[in-house]
């Protein structure tokens, strides 16, 4: 039991903001990086409200006209509907399918467990085009390519493994004796799951679900290969608009980009209430909160 919490290495000096030139250089580089990101976001927002912007620091005038233009011309109601259905659908299905597997992988040892692990890891390891293109071909053959269902199915491929990976540490930290205790009290298997495991796993399910939502909304490749002209997700619609510019006013494209940005931010800040930033990239539970 060492009672010290904060431990600084070194003497009384050399702490806090008294830093070396090298450290200041790093801070400057970091500030430059973040400044550029902020500027990139700012240009998109500013341009979406501009009447015209050819050179100069800011647009010549401001209007919200392009939002209504984008809303109609890009068919955004449909696009947002598709995006929402796909994201929520994928999250729900991935949780239903992935959670039991995560439980088994966390709790049990059985022959072939390593193979099972590899199977769940591999979809996250190979580039999405590698399985995306043949999968899209198969889905078109089955007649669901180019539809909302096809986009949903394709997005399940990285999502089920994501749930398994994100959830296993949550299962591992639940004391196995709790399940034994529930059984000793006379609970049946289904009751153990419903009354003991599910409530304890709720934070894990929530964060895994949010991770899948964030991933699916941002997933470009798989949605792009499987999306038809009427069933695009927002990121795919944005890509198409950017890919064939000229025929549409750039402000309208930026207006769509702003809408996408707002959707991402809303989801992100919801997610950050339940998961740490680290968890969002590494899918590992951050215990050092």
């Amino acid at each position: 039991m060492s009672e010290e919490v904060a431990v600084a290495t070194g003497g009384r000096v050399s702490r806090g903001w008294v830093a070396t030139p090298g450290r200041w250089l790093l801070r400057a580089a970091l500030a430059f990086f973040l400044l550029n990101i902020a500027a990139i976001v700012a240009t998109v927002v500013l341009d979406s409200f501009g009447t015209r912007w050819f050179g100069g620091w800011a647009p010549h005038g401001y209007t919200s006209h392009y939002y209504s233009w984008a809303w109609q011309q890009f068919g955004l109601p449909r696009v947002l509907f598709v995006t929402g259905v796909v994201a929520v659908g994928v999250a729900v299905i991935a949780l239903l399918v992935g959670a039991p597997a995560a439980y088994i992988l966390a709790r049990r040892s059985f022959p072939g467990k390593r193979v099972a692990w590899a199977m769940f890891l591999l979809p996250l390891l190979v580039p999405p085009v590698t399985y995306g293109i043949p999968l899209a071909t198969l889905l078109y053959r089955l007649g669901i390519g180019g539809s909302l269902l096809g986009v949903l199915v394709a997005n399940l491929v990285p999502s089920v493994p994501l749930v398994v990976l994100a959830l296993t540490p949550y299962v591992e930290q639940i004391d196995p004796t709790l399940e034994g205790a529930a059984r000793a009290c006379g609970a049946r298997t289904s009751q153990v799951f419903r009354r003991v495991l599910a409530p304890l796993l709720l934070p894990g399910l929530l964060s895994a679900g949010l991770l899948v939502l964030v991933q699916t909304i941002g997933m470009f490749e798989l949605s792009f290969f499987t999306a038809g002209p009427t069933d695009q997700t927002l990121v795919v619609a944005l890509y198409y608009a950017l890919w064939a510019p000229g025929i549409r006013p750039p402000q309208a494209i930026d207006a769509m980009a702003v809408i996408y940005m707002l959707l991402c931010l809303a989801l992100l800040f919801t997610a950050l209430r339940f998961v740490s930033p680290t968890q969002m990239v590494a899918q590992v539970k951050d215990n050092r909160k």
Partner: peptide, 10 residues
């Protein structure tokens, strides 16, 4: 979270 498409746009 923004991803490459949005960043490319900006």
């Amino acid at each position: 979270t923004f991803g490459t498409v949005l960043v490319s746009d900006g």
